[in-house]
Amino acid sequence: MRLVRSRHDTRSAILGYLWCSGGSFRPELAQGVALTEASISRIISDLKAEGVIQETRRVAPYRGGPSLFVTLSHDIAVAAIEISNNRLYAAVGTLAGDTLYAQHDDLPDGLGAAEVDVTVGRAVAGLAAWARQHGIVPEQLAVSIPGYDPDLRASPIVALDVGRLEEVCQRELPDTPARWTNSMVARAVGYRLQMGTGVLGGSYFFVFVGHGVGAAIVDELAESGDVETCEIGHVVIERDGRYCRCGHGGCLEPYVSTVALADILQVQESELIGGGDRWPELFRVSSAARAEIRARLARLGLAIGNALNLNRQRNVVIAGWPSALPAEDRAAVMAAIGESRLGGLQGISLSFSAASLGREPQAGLALAAFSFIRRSGARRTQLKQSISS
């Protein structure tokens, strides 16, 4: 079936397929975006002329097959400011996925607004200075902030004045378009890139469990780019329960975050996150700790089941520390979903993604690249011409 798309959408679809696949021969690319080679030929020529994609010769995949391999450009830069795991990451990378620059600063829970402002300002200025030194003007900046809400000037999670950060970014990177969003959007987009081209389309409820806990409803991400965040980590599951960094008591997050897991294992959270997907191998998990972990996973499952009662999603993807556990431990999540969701587990599909711990700022850079792709790869100069006209 061939899809009817505008030229803008066709460009985005082609770039999105190349982004997810890491590159493709033309026949495979045409099939992947449900168009003919003739249909995409002109657009590929335009994107090459604009420097957004490039073609290199490779050994043909079969006798008589194509030898020109299409990839996203390694010469287009994107940038990210990502706040995650009590750190602020500033990074520059290429559209093709190379990381060119990455620095981080600590943002411990409870840090005051003045200290946060100084740290953020220093990070953005450092990124901009590095870019100028190397003659780079990023085509897109992505800024991901925990608890970000466009209607609120301040984040309820981090003592950050979003309005002032916008001013800093505009001053230091005046020619770079910026996308401001919740950290969960960056996580969901990063997961989409990680999954490649095998699962284009569909919708699912994406849950990330790390230092922060959040969720997103992802609807046809490869085509529309729609991601609707859900603050599942701040659903109150126990009145007057454990204190949460959002200021409430009894939220889900302090029971299932990496802070809570580190407390169960009696290790430092930084060590736990540094272990990435291998944390169950690196730290001793006693029988008592395993029982407590399963109890916490059950709380997570109850919260997910209740969320599914509201949004009617049937496909659930969980990323974060639970993903590294053996199947018999993760089963506690599925069982609890069935206990809280109307209709039980009927029709529910649950999968676990790689833990994705300690991999920042890849999610932020993925979001920047994806945002550039969603505007059909229009360069900064093209955007300015479009606005002025």
Score class of each variant (00 low, 15 high):
1 M>L: 06
5 R>L: 11
9 D>W: 05
9 D>S: 11
12 S>R: 14
13 A>L: 12
14 I>P: 00
17 Y>I: 04
25 F>Q: 04
30 A>Q: 10
30 A>L: 13
34 A>H: 14
39 S>Q: 14
39 S>A: 15
42 R>I: 10
49 A>N: 15
50 E>G: 12
51 G>E: 12
57 R>Y: 11
64 G>M: 13
65 G>C: 09
72 L>A: 06
73 S>P: 15
77 A>N: 08
82 E>C: 15
82 E>L: 15
85 N>A: 15
89 Y>S: 01
100 L>P: 03
103 Q>G: 07
103 Q>V: 15
109 D>F: 01
111 L>W: 03
112 G>I: 04
115 E>H: 13
118 V>D: 13
119 T>Y: 02
121 G>A: 04
128 A>Y: 12
129 A>V: 05
131 A>G: 03
132 R>N: 13
133 Q>S: 11
141 L>E: 01
149 D>M: 02
162 V>L: 08
166 E>P: 00
173 L>V: 05
182 N>Y: 00
182 N>V: 05
183 S>D: 03
183 S>I: 06
186 A>E: 00
186 A>G: 02
189 V>G: 09
197 T>G: 12
200 L>V: 11
202 G>V: 10
208 F>V: 14
213 V>A: 03
219 D>T: 11
231 E>K: 11
232 I>F: 07
251 C>I: 04
254 P>W: 01
261 L>E: 00
269 E>H: 04
272 L>V: 00
276 G>Y: 13
279 W>D: 01
285 V>K: 03
287 S>M: 09
288 A>C: 07
292 E>V: 06
300 L>F: 08
301 G>L: 05
302 L>S: 10
314 R>I: 06
315 N>I: 09
333 V>Q: 02
344 G>H: 10
352 F>L: 03
353 S>W: 08
365 L>P: 00
374 R>Q: 13
377 G>N: 06
